[in-house]
Every structure is written in C-alpha cells, then in structure tokens.
Design a binder for these strands. Sequence first.
RNA 1: AGCUCCAUAGUUCAACGGAUAGAAUAGAAGUUUCCUAAACUUUAGAUUCAGGUUCGAUUCCUGGUGGAGCUACCA
Length: 591
Amino acid sequence: MNFQEKIEFAAISGIQEIYQIKVDSLEFQSTRKEFDGDITLVIFPLLRYIKGNPVEIGTKIGEYLKINFPEIIDFNVIKGFLNLVANPTIFLESFQEIYQNEHYGILNPTTNSKSVMVEYSSPNTNKPLHLGHVRNNLLGYSVANIIEASGKKVIKTQIINDRGIHICKSMLAWELYGNGATPKSTGLKGDKLVGNYYVAFDKVYKKEIEQLITEGKSEEEAKKQAPILLKAQEMLLKWEAGDEHVVALWKKMNEWVYEGFNATYLALGVDFHKNYYESQTYLLGKEVVNEGMEKGVFYRKEDGSVWIDLTDDGLDEKIVLRSDGTAVYMTQDIGTAIQRYKEFSLESLIYTVGNEQDYHFKVLFLIMKKLGYEWADHLYHLSYGMVDLPSGKMKSREGTVVDADELIEEMKNSAQEISEELGKLESYNKIEKQNLYRIIGLGALKYFILKVDPKKRILFDPKESIDFNGNTGPFIQYTYARIQSILRKADFEFSQTVENYNLNDKEKSLIKQLQLYPEVIQNAAQNLSPALVANYTFDLVKEYNSFYQSNSILNADTLTEKQFRTQLSYKVGTVIKSAFGLLGIEVPERM
RNA sequence: AGCUCCAUAGUUCAACGGAUAGAAUAGAAGUUUCCUAAACUUUAGAUUCAGGUUCGAUUCCUGGUGGAGCUACCA
C-alpha cells in the first residue's frame, strides 16, 4: 500500500466506525499546495449518508482519525474540505517501496490472458508519409506500449492499403511520364518517387477536367469522363483480372514504397508484429454479408446492391455490397475484424484512425453487433484530431503537406544548432553527437505531438519551429541528463535503505509525484491517451528541477542526506526513462 | 439541410461535477565563484454568449454564435 491508500483506508475505516454506515466510495484528492495537508476528503458527497453541517462533520471525522489512526497526525477543515496531514514516516516507507521496485509502475501480463490488438499507421501506398501519419504512428505505438505496461499482451498491426484506384493513378502516370525512372536512377526514396507520379496524375487530371468543361460538360461529368481517369479505372480492372503486366508493375512500385516506408518507420522508431495487406483482405467479408442477409440484418435493393438500414439507431442506410457484387471498404473491414478474432485470442481491438472516420467506425461496430458477434463491444476507435496547417487541411495531391522525413531531418538539425551553440559536448565524438541530435530532435517532435489530448486537433505552423525550451521533450531529457551526471559523480554507496530521515517539503512533493506513476499508466491505458503520461512526466520533472535548484545533492551536509537525495534522483531518472519509453522517446546520458 | 466533434491567458496546452481555473511560451524583473542556466525564482494576463440542473458547473442539459469533420456503389 502506498501512503495515499493507507490514508484513504484509515479515513474509510474511521467513518464507518463513527457513523456505523457502509461507504463504498469516498471522494479524495491530493491537497492543494496553498493548504496544509496531504490528502483531502471532500465532505459534500457524504451529506447523502450523514445529515449535518459539512464543517462539523469534517471536524468530527478529523478528530477521530487523528486520535485513532497513527497515519494521520493532524487535520484542518476549510468549507467542505477535510485536509489530512499524514505522518511523515509513511512517505519514507512509501519511497522505499518505490525505490526497490525495479519495474515500478509496470505490470506484467497474466499468463494465458488474451491480447489487445492495436492497429495503426495503415497507409496508402501511393504517396509518402506526412505529419498526419506521424501523429497516427506515434499515437498507436505509444498506446500499444502503455497498454502493455498496464499488464496486457499487445499485438501491433497495420493494414496496408496496397490496392485500389489510388495506386493505379501513380502506376499509370509512371508508365506515361516516368521514362523508366527508379529509386536508384533518381536517387529518390521509393515512396517519394511514387508520390511524385501521384501528383503528376492529378495535374493532368485537373487539366483534362478544365478542358472538358470548356467543351461544355458539367463539372460532375468532366470529373467522371476525364480520359486519364478512365485509363486508371481500366488499369484497376486489369489488376483485378490478374493482368500479368499490371500486376508486375504494381508489385514493383509497391516494393519501392515499402522500402521508403520502412526507412520512415525506422527513423520514427515504430514497428509492427503483423502486417495485413488490403490486396489479400479486400475480398473478405462478402460471405458474411450473405449470411447476414439470411439473418435479416442486410437487405438487397432492386439493382442488386446490399444495404443495412440503421435509421432506427439514428444513423443512415449504408451500402455493404455494390450492385456488381464487389466489396466496399465496410465489407472489407467486417471481414478483417472477423479474421483477426479467428487468428488471435483477442480481448479487444483498437483502430487508430483519424476522427474523419468516426461515422464509419460507428457503423462498423454497430454492424458487428447486429451480426451477433459478442466481441463487438470490445472494438474501439482511437479517434484523433487532424493535424492542420494554418492554411487548412494537408492535401498530398496539392503538395500542401509536411513531409515526415523532411520534418525529422529538420528537427535533428535544430537540435544540432542548439547543442553547438551551448557547446557542452566536447567529450563526444562525431557519431555520438549525431545520435544525440537524433534523440533530442525526435524527442522534441514526439513530445510536441503526444502531449496533446489525442481527440484534439493540432495546429502545426511550419514557420514556427517546435520548441526546445519549456514544456518540451528536450526539457525533460535535459533533466534526465543532469540526473545521470550526478549518478556518475556519486562516489559513495547510496543504495542502502535510509531510515530516520527528515523529509523537507520539496522531497515530500517529489515522493508524492513519484507515487502517482502506476495509476497514471493505468489511467492512460484506459483512456488510450499518451498525453496523460506526457503531462505527468512534465509535472514530475518540474518538481524535480525545483528540488534540484534549492537542495544540494552531492554537496549535502550529511552522508544520509547525500544518500537519500541521490536515491531520490536516481528513481526520478528511472521513472522519466520509463515514462518516455512509453511515449517512444529516448533519453540521453548527457546533453 | 441533417448528424458528429470543438471553443480556456496574445499563442500552445492542463484541469474524475469540487477550494482562489493550472503550466509553457511571448512580456516585465531577478538568480551562475556551488551537482549541466535546454534550468530556477518573482510578476502581469483567460473559461464564446444566454438560460437551466446542483450545496458547488470550464466540465452536465437546452438554445444562440463561431470553427472543423461526416453525410460516395472511394479507401
């Protein structure tokens, strides 16, 4: 039991003894800094069980606890808030427990437990990854880490959208205008090369539309009749028919893209246990639709297309099979979900996909439920906000995107500039320096994105560079580096248990902050929110820096002080490292 | 048009229905013979509007305003 649980337990016992009532939940909060005390009991909710004046009740409880429970040495009541002052010894005990736990805050999965599958990234293979994908990847990867740390088995996966009209557009433009260009011949990253032809396609397409409009067609007609689009559609049909030439081209260009993606994933530090490919899953789900029709979940319209009517659930009608019998996005997602539950023993399945698809997933989950899959209740859409530019939405076709690779490079360069200006790295060789710039640059980028609640949209202004001071990744990394510096210099044994130590306020606050870590992880796992971990770490570091500023550690007066403060620093360091690990951010030994 | 989401200091972010709404940055003023000043300390500055529920509302409900997204036989 940590100190908080001890106090809460005492308070609950006390109230039951005084009033002879059973209270299952009380409202506690940590006492605000401006008041005396460690834990605060809010009296108001108790008024439901106990009639009377909140202040009188609070005082009565406080007096009883002070007399009967050694954990509580004092109290005060302000309005309806009972502030309890804890016995200092339980802080020290609490810290000893934390200090000795090597994997503090991290739980191991119970054997034979089911897995949580986290899907993220899931790119189209016709263009490079941009900042929006970066947010997706960082979120998915971090949420997977956090869920794992909360004591679950995790399977990371992505479904690669490797087929469809989009890739045909790139393929067609490459055939028409590529002159046989390859990543090797151009020196371009494969995904960049393929992306260029996607843009090239769009340029021609737009021109053709304009031309058709001047010839008197409506915009809608023009969009459907542009020759280059018709060719792309023809190519898709050939692909579906297994045309040798088209399939070979498709394979070749996809390979280029995969190489490019893998380089970006490596740079970002994300990975997957299993990849699914849409080309292998797009036919899934059709049989399920037929079964569903027998059950009366779906119905067929006159033209042969199959629909589900969700108007009773406040939604629309949704198509699940085209009139020509082919599958749509929804059909495929139905099939893939079933396949995943067949393949793995899953406790839940989390889709990391932008909030523009909120509706799609609402419908998907509802369909699964209507089809009678009992696991439909354990499907979650980790819906995150768009990353917008000041000019609006990022659009690959129009070139208004922040490219992932370029952004990562820029971040490293900024880190280098700042580091060189500060000039603290004489002892590092070139390779060590480059690695450090990478750690810091990526740390700044990842923290910038992950500290924001996933649900909220992020406004990214390319003209304003991402900060390295204040509430940032490098700020936290810097604190870690300072702690490591202290540990390197500590020339005494500090690992033995310190007893009879008189904690000062800063030390006490730090212990309180450390103590929160396990519940922060559980909370973040529950809410699928790395932001909670990021904000916690920032608070911890702020607390530590304040402590560091006003307390000598290695130059403290007594050996006991030195030992305790070094232990405290060490543990803060390990928690920083652990928490940042959950965010996928590395920490440097010096900076 | 309908549906969904969002609105907090100049800016970027916090706040299980709880105390005087916290940080960071930009602004003002300080701290380095002492463990790394990418740090610390002090200071000024905000809940879109109108109602309602509640002992108590940034948080829940209704309405208005402003912004984003979705409403494809695309994925």
